[in-house]
Amino acid sequence: MTDIPLSTWAAMAEIIGAGSIITGLLVVLFQIRQFRVQQRNAVAINLAQTFYSPDLAQALSLMQNVPDGISLAEIRARGPEYEQAAITVCTSFETMGLLVHEKIAPMGLVLDLAGGIVSTMSRKLARWQEDLREEQQQPSWGEWFEWLGDQARAIKHEQPPAHIRLDQGAGGS
């Protein structure tokens, strides 16, 4: 055959095997990274689609005109459409808050999509939530909406809105 000893062939086979294992691990790591990017993009698309909901748009339209800290009684006095709007706003942003907390959706993405709205709506509906929690004897009602609102207010006060921040960046170039 050839003059290469069997031990050399065995060593070459081990090197090739180790190289195959390393290549396989690198491919797996790359695929995991790609999967995470795809998952993040899917979450972003789903979150963005939330804002195409006619129900949420109608609810936000009604709620933007209520004063900050409106109570449960005041919401009910305005009619059932206002109470439904408050529930729609709360439950929509409740879902977003939980997705952020569980690190399924990045905070930055959610705040870029809805930070100002969440901040405003949670401020307007804070008293309503407290009243509803007491009435329903359910202290966790809207907890993730409240949490997301608190986060949004804190972060939004640290940095200027995108339209100002981006204009400043473009002017400085």
Rank of each mutant, 00 (worst) to 15 (best):
S7Y: 03
S7T: 13
M12K: 02
E14Y: 03
I16N: 00
G17S: 11
I22G: 07
I22L: 15
G24H: 01
G24M: 02
L26G: 05
F30D: 01
F30I: 04
F35L: 12
R36L: 08
Q38Y: 01
Q39Y: 00
N41K: 11
F51P: 00
S53A: 11
P54R: 12
D55N: 13
L56Y: 08
Q58C: 03
Q58H: 13
L60T: 04
N65Y: 10
P67M: 04
P67D: 08
I75M: 05
I75W: 04
R76F: 01
A77H: 06
R78A: 13
G79S: 06
P80H: 09
Q84W: 03
T88I: 14
F93K: 00
E94R: 06
T95D: 00
M96P: 04
G97M: 06
L99C: 04
L99T: 08
V100A: 05
V100L: 03
H101P: 02
E102G: 01
K103L: 10
K103G: 05
P106I: 00
P106G: 08
L109S: 10
L111G: 12
L111Q: 08
A114E: 01
I117S: 10
I117H: 02
V118P: 11
T120Y: 01
M121L: 03
S122L: 06
R127N: 11
W128D: 04
Q129C: 15
Q129K: 06
E130H: 10
E130C: 08
D131P: 00
D131W: 03
D131Y: 02
D131R: 04
L132Y: 12
R133Y: 00
R133E: 07
E134C: 00
E134V: 12
E134Y: 07
Q137T: 14
Q138A: 12
S140A: 11
S140W: 07
G142S: 07
W144I: 02
W144N: 15
F145N: 05
W147A: 15
D150E: 12
R153M: 07
I155S: 05
H157F: 06
E158G: 07
P161I: 07
A162N: 09
I164M: 10
I164A: 09
R165E: 15
G169I: 07
G169M: 09
G171I: 01
S173Y: 07
